Amino acid sequence: MAPPPPTVLFVAALGLTLEGVVAPVSRALESHGFRRVAVAGRGSVTPSLRRSFDEVHEITPFRRAGLGGLVRAGRDLARIVRDERPALLHLHTPYAIALGRVVARATRTRHLAVVHGTLFGAAGRSGRIFAAVESASARFTPWYVTENPDDQASYRRLAPRSQVRLAPCGGAGVDVVGLRAARRRADEGGHRAPRVLIMGRLTPDKNLDLAVAAWRLARQTRPDLELRVVGSTVAREPSWAPPEEAGIVPAGWTDDPAAELAAADVVLLTSLREGFPLVVTEALVVGTPVVVVDNRGTRAVARHVREGLLLVPPDATALALALLAQLRARTVQIRPESLLAWQREDVAAFHADRILEAVGGMPTGVARGAGPDR
């Protein structure tokens, strides 16, 4: 009788993360004979998520749930680990990494942490707690994948005996062909007012009041400039609502974000913390210029871009001037080797190879840019 296939248990606080970031990696693992199981906070799993995994479990919600929620979620996760007996826990986002690290040690299960962003250097209580927790416990995780060189350097310092690899792109990469097709469709459209686009989660964490302030200043020079806000709130997260004023056009989340990116004249991102922002990467692939606040993640993207991305300090006047400059320039040029490395299939293969390495298998080596420091 053949032994059962090895199981990889993917853990994230939200089903949204599993669906948007982890599902392509899960699909890339299918041909290697793994059983792929997903775990997320209760109430965040959508029916479509189940198409990319063999099994989906929901546990006590633990994102921003306080110590009690984390303890209950830890018990739930430990029970699932004992039942599933995974070869590897694949952990995503800070809450899941902290929770999964504890459960992995308690159950003696291998684990790999994918760091989509950190709070290192962040001001306030959350930043101090994060730094203290990671300083004390980062060394207990044997394998890391980070999305920018700054986070890679931080974890190499905190976990000097761990393997810390740098992913070629954020999340699961981008659909280059689909994004380029969206640009062609947008170019066929008619004339409209110039548009600045904000797209993503509507939460104060994204520093969206600063984005509005910058747009207002830019509008003093370009009175016809529109601010389109595409996004939605997330459960258990503080919400932000766009002001009701002329020129601001709010919209709910869309099933076709590529069309929104292609229809914009400039994409604006004012978040102070990012791992490797996909909305920025996708906008650049579409061919839409971007203005971003300088942080660990946006600096990582800038390394790959010759023209079309402006890094700016978190200041409304500086951001407004950058918006006006990008409206005039309308030029994007990505390094060709970076564009190849960002493709979704290659990024998913990179993460699949890291999983194979962690469980003692042989990586495929098909992902571009998967050398020793990648």
Score class of each variant (00 low, 15 high):
residue 169 C to L: 08
residue 356 L to F: 07
residue 123 A to P: 10
residue 311 L to Q: 04
residue 286 V to D: 05
residue 278 L to V: 13
residue 366 V to A: 11
residue 354 R to E: 11
residue 289 P to H: 08
residue 326 Q to H: 02
residue 92 H to F: 06
residue 17 T to C: 03
residue 86 P to L: 09
residue 236 R to Y: 08
residue 134 E to N: 13
residue 76 D to I: 01
residue 160 P to V: 06
residue 93 T to Y: 14
residue 45 V to W: 03
residue 80 I to R: 01
residue 9 L to I: 13
residue 300 A to I: 03
residue 102 V to I: 13
residue 70 L to V: 13
residue 34 F to R: 11
residue 274 E to W: 04
residue 326 Q to E: 13
residue 171 G to R: 02
residue 327 L to Q: 02
residue 232 S to E: 15
residue 319 L to I: 10
residue 4 P to Y: 04
residue 188 E to M: 10
residue 181 A to L: 08
residue 232 S to M: 10
residue 293 V to W: 06
residue 352 A to V: 05
residue 78 A to E: 10
residue 109 T to M: 04
residue 183 R to V: 01
residue 282 E to N: 08
residue 199 M to A: 15
residue 119 L to G: 07
residue 251 A to F: 00
residue 61 P to A: 07
residue 199 M to E: 12
residue 335 R to K: 15
residue 226 E to G: 10
residue 192 R to Q: 11
residue 56 V to T: 15
residue 44 S to E: 06
residue 23 A to K: 07
residue 168 P to D: 07
residue 245 E to N: 06
residue 43 G to H: 12
residue 188 E to T: 08
residue 43 G to Q: 08
residue 269 L to I: 14
residue 191 H to E: 15
residue 227 L to R: 12
residue 43 G to L: 11
residue 57 H to P: 13
residue 283 A to Y: 12
residue 96 A to L: 06
residue 229 V to M: 08
residue 17 T to F: 04
residue 306 R to C: 11
residue 183 R to T: 04
residue 270 T to M: 13
residue 131 A to M: 11
residue 330 R to G: 05
residue 304 H to Q: 15
residue 244 E to W: 06
residue 292 V to A: 15
residue 272 L to D: 02
residue 162 S to Y: 03
residue 368 R to W: 09
residue 116 H to C: 01
residue 263 A to T: 11
residue 121 G to V: 00
residue 251 A to T: 10
residue 148 N to C: 01
residue 193 A to Y: 08
residue 230 V to K: 00
residue 131 A to L: 10
residue 29 L to G: 12
residue 148 N to V: 02
residue 84 E to R: 05
residue 76 D to Y: 03
residue 105 R to N: 01
residue 207 N to Y: 01
residue 131 A to R: 13
residue 5 P to D: 15
residue 50 R to D: 08
residue 213 A to C: 02
residue 8 V to F: 07
residue 44 S to H: 09
residue 145 V to L: 03
residue 176 V to M: 04
residue 211 A to R: 03
residue 95 Y to V: 15
